[in-house]
Structures are given as C-alpha cells and as structure tokens.
Computed example of a mutant assay.
Amino acid sequence: MPIQLSDASFTYPNGTPAVENVNLTIGDGERVAIVGQNGAGKTTTVKMMNGLLRPTSGTVSVDGELTADRSAADIAKSVGYVFQNPDDQIFGSDVQGELEYMPKYYRWDAVKRTERVKRAAMMTGIGHFMQLNPNDLPFAIKKFVAIGAILVGECRYVILDEPTAGLDGRGLKLLNRMIDQLGADGIGVITITHDMRFVADTFDRVVAMAHRTVIADGDVHDVFADDSVMREAKLKRPEVSQLARDLGLSDTALRLGDVAALVP
C-alpha cells in the first residue's frame, strides 16, 4: 500500500503555516527526491509521512490507514526516518547496541535479531565498528550507524534527510550502493536534499516544493528541464545538465554518460 497525502496541511501552534494542501502518493519501491529551498515545506511533509507530525487538515495514510489513528511507533514499522544529524538519533553506548535496540524492543528471537543486525551492518559498511562508541566515530560513519539502526527494522519505506551532507566520495558510493540494494529489495527510498547531482544520479522521480506546497512532480529529467519550476523552487540543475544545455546537446541529459553519448 502507498503513502498518500491528500490536501495535507500543517500549521504550527503559533499559527505559522508550514505546509499547505499537499497531494502526493508514493508507491512501494519508488525512489523519490523531494527538493526545494529551506522553508519550502520538505521536512514537514516527510515528517507527516511517518507520524512525527500529524496534519492539521487533510489526511495522510500509510498502508491504507490514517496516520491520525496510529501511534508514531506503529507507523515507524512501515516508514523509517533517518535524521540529518545522527546525534539527534543515536543514543547507544556502542554500535552493536544501537542496532540491536529495535529488535530487542520488539522482542524478536535471537536468530532474527542476529540476521537483521548483520544485514544492516553489511549494507551500511559499519561492520568493523560494532564494538565502538558511536560518539567516537567520524561524522560520516555515524550517519551510516543511524541509517543502519533504521534498516534493522522491516520498514517498506526509508526517509533520508540530507543523506549526502558530510560524506566524501567513498561515502557517496556506499550510499548509492545501499539505495540500489533497498530498491532491489522492494523498499521505497524518499530523500530530502539540496544535492542536485545526487538527485540526478540516484533518483527517478522528483517532487519540487516552493511556497509550502508541491509545484512539480514527475520524472527527474522533465522536472530539471523545466526552467519555470527550477526558478520558482530556486534550484540549480546539476553541472552536467547545465553543460549539456550550454553546448546545445540536450535539455534533459543529467549524467556524464548521457552527455558523452551525445557528443559527435
């Protein structure tokens, strides 16, 4: 069952609107990037998807059930959320304990717990750090610890908040490999990010937000080629895409391979 937002709005208790009339459906296994400038409503939108925030009007449903009728802990079984700053999420005294927290909370048997922790550690490349305190690890490694703590669960969607921030080239390769594996497993990935190259290289669908609502939703090539959307969302297309346009090769090429194939 999809994640579905229907005319979903959120207003803070002081009367400040954060999101207004968002309509969005994300199906099983989709890879969706939500982009836009700060204040566009991205974070509020994804927090409504997993119950961290509840819409003040309209509805949000997961697995066909309204989030308003479920606890955040229950929704998190289906929709995992990885915070931008791992320090906002990590609390274990060692990486092993951090990854085992969820299996122990749900009282999984030892075999299942071991299998899920091993899988999460392998996917995130943190197997060598299991006995270390997360607070002693570099920021980039801590980000993968936070991701691993979510992947231990059996969620069908994973939300990644600015996942490329603080990562070097090796970390980016690991992140992309992990996202590919999640896709192969039928798990949907939703990211909010300012990294347009990451979006172009990794995601199939882009949701652009501005003025606290969705202004475009479609194929990554089409959205990035739409000048009016890019201007309204105050976004810049990836360097490769801009180069292809400047050279008169294509308005929709996004990746180096795309551009190379167009060069006579």
Rank of each mutant, 00 (worst) to 15 (best):
D63G: 12
V35F: 13
N135L: 01
H211P: 01
P103S: 11
D87Q: 02
F144D: 11
G27Q: 04
E20W: 13
V35S: 11
R197V: 05
V117Q: 09
D63S: 14
T124G: 08
S61D: 07
L262Q: 10
G58H: 09
A260W: 00
T11S: 00
I215H: 07
N14S: 02
A260E: 06
D185Y: 10
K77Q: 14
T191C: 14
D227H: 07
Q242A: 10
M196S: 04
M49K: 07
M209C: 08
G15V: 00
E100D: 10
E239S: 02
T56R: 00
P264S: 07
T213W: 09
S228R: 06
A216R: 01
E30H: 02
A184K: 12
R31W: 02
T213G: 14
M209H: 10
V214Y: 15
A216K: 08
Q242W: 09
V111N: 11
I75H: 13
S9M: 01
A68C: 08
A140D: 15
D74Y: 14
V189T: 14
E115A: 15
L99T: 03
D161G: 13
Y157I: 02
I159H: 12
I90R: 01
R156E: 15
N50R: 12
V199L: 04
L24V: 01
M49E: 11
A121L: 05
D136L: 14
V95H: 10
T213A: 10
H194G: 11
K112G: 04
